[in-house]
């Protein structure tokens, strides 16, 4: 679905005459291979290059070195630009700054309108996508009156209406309250499970990553760790060095392990921890 080889990107700082003053490497020789239908998470603290990487997948940025293919299409090919953007939709961080329409359904229709989809088909798609994110009953509402989580779900519906095979969510929950966060992540998970859409979730909240199929951890533009959530979170010390938090259950299990409680590695959820502790207790 998405494949990157040696992907590198610089942010250039220009002086007043427009000469390059300094170059900052935002993404540094990243190799990725994401298979269709997977739920992928990309983790990293601020400035780790994860958002820059995300913008490459939607061809908003094109690589300075290396190549990125989306569904076999090279993002550097200008004539494929709209196909790539239709194929890999993108949801951004700030819900207010990505809703174009003044009524929910008009906003969802914006993408298909741009693609030149016939009118009847647009209506069908709008209905389907709003239904898929559970926002159908708000179709006539003004986006200004929705909560942050609802706005983000409308934004996801707007992308869904373009019938993408992959959705990149760039820190979609960073500005939301816990309830909104949960609803957005659950929506993404459902789309992945039921519609088979590849989800690439970029975040720094560890709890959102637990259910992912594969996790990439980025630091200073490089992919420094990857694997299943269980593999990644069992390396608590390394994650701490990267200034990332692990889920609370994992952290507690890790601290208990250090004190000599015999728990297995890679506990992710509260329930798992409870089960393991009960098992230990019954053995005593």
């Amino acid at each position: 679905m998405v494949r990157a080889e040696g992907l590198t990107f610089y942010y250039e700082r220009l002086d007043e005459e427009g000469n390059v003053e300094s170059k900052k490497r935002a993404v540094d020789h990243v190799d990725l291979h994401i298979r269709p239908g997977k739920f992928i998470a990309i983790l990293g603290h601020n400035g780790s290059g994860k958002s820059t990487l995300a913008k490459h997948i939607n061809a908003i940025l094109t690589p300075a070195e290396g190549t990125l293919w989306v569904d076999g299409m090279d993002t550097k090919e200008e004539e494929k630009l709209w196909d790539i953007r239709q194929d890999a939709g993108m949801v951004f961080q700030n819900p207010d700054n990505q809703i174009i329409g003044t009524v929910v359904e008009e906003d969802v229709g914006f993408g298909p309108e741009n693609l030149g989809v016939p009118t009847d088909e647009i209506w069908k798609r709008v209905e389907e996508s709003l239904d898929a994110v559970g926002m159908l009953k708000y179709r006539h509402h003004s986006p200004n009156k929705l909560s942050g989580g609802q706005k983000q779900r409308v934004a996801i519906a707007g992308v869904m209406a373009m019938h993408p095979r992959c959705i990149v969510l760039d820190e979609p929950t960073a500005m939301l309250d816990p309830n909104g966060r949960k609803s957005v992540i659950q929506t993404a998970q459902r789309l992945n499970r039921e519609e088979g859409i590849t989800i690439i979730l970029i975040t720094h909240y560890m709890e959102e990553v637990v259910e992912a199929d594969h996790v990439f951890v980025m630091d200073e533009g490089r992919v420094v760790m990857e694997g299943s959530p269980r593999q990644v979170f069992s390396q608590v010390e390394e994650l701490k060095k990267l200034r990332l938090d692990v889920p609370q259950a994992t952290l507690l299990a890790f601290e208990l392990q250090k004190r000599g409680v015999r728990l297995p590695d890679g506990i992710l959820r509260n329930e798992e921890l409870v089960d393991e502790l009960c098992r230990l207790k019954s053995k005593m």
Binding site: N58, I60, W82, R85, Q86, G89, M90, F92, N94, N97, Q98, I100, F110, G111, N114, L115, G158, V159, M162
Partner: peptide
């Protein structure tokens, strides 16, 4: 941000 979001949704 909005310009980027519009481009990401194929506005041309």
């Amino acid at each position: 941000d909005l310009a980027m979001a519009m481009e990401a949704r194929c506005y041309h």
